[in-house]
Amino acid sequence: MQFPPPPRIPSGTRRRTLLASAAGGLLLTGCTDGPEEQEEATAGSPSLAERARARAAVDSAGLVARYDAALAAHPALTERIAPLREAAVRHVTAFGGARRSPRASATPSVTPPPSASAPPPGTERNALAELAAAERALADRRAQELLAMPGELARLLASVAAAGAAHAYLLTQAPTEGPA
Score class of each variant (00 low, 15 high):
E40W: 07
T17I: 11
A163I: 05
R99I: 00
P150E: 09
A98T: 08
S21I: 15
R15W: 08
S101H: 06
A54S: 14
L170G: 10
S105A: 05
F3L: 12
E40I: 10
S109M: 01
D59K: 07
A94T: 12
A41T: 12
A168K: 12
V58Y: 00
R15A: 09
A65E: 06
E145G: 06
S101F: 03
S45L: 15
L18Y: 11
P102V: 07
G151R: 15
V58A: 10
G97D: 00
N126E: 14
L156P: 09
A98V: 01
A143L: 04
R14T: 09
L28W: 10
R155T: 14
L147D: 04
H91A: 14
M149F: 08
T32A: 10
A106G: 08
A43K: 13
A65V: 04
L157D: 02
R142A: 03
A129Q: 11
S101W: 04
A106S: 15
M1Q: 02
P119G: 03
E50I: 11
R53A: 15
R14Y: 03
E79G: 15
P5I: 07
P46L: 11
A139S: 15
T176L: 11
A118R: 13
V160T: 15
F3W: 06
V110P: 02
R85Q: 10
G164F: 06
G178A: 13
C31Y: 10
V92T: 05
P114C: 02
A127I: 09
G34W: 10
A180T: 11
E50Y: 11
V64I: 01
H74I: 05
A98S: 13
T42Q: 14
A132E: 04
V92C: 02
P7R: 13
R100C: 00
R8F: 13
E124H: 05
A134N: 06
L171E: 03
R99Q: 02
M1F: 06
S101K: 02
T42K: 14
T29M: 10
E36N: 11
A20E: 02
P179C: 04
L48D: 04
E130C: 09
L146T: 09
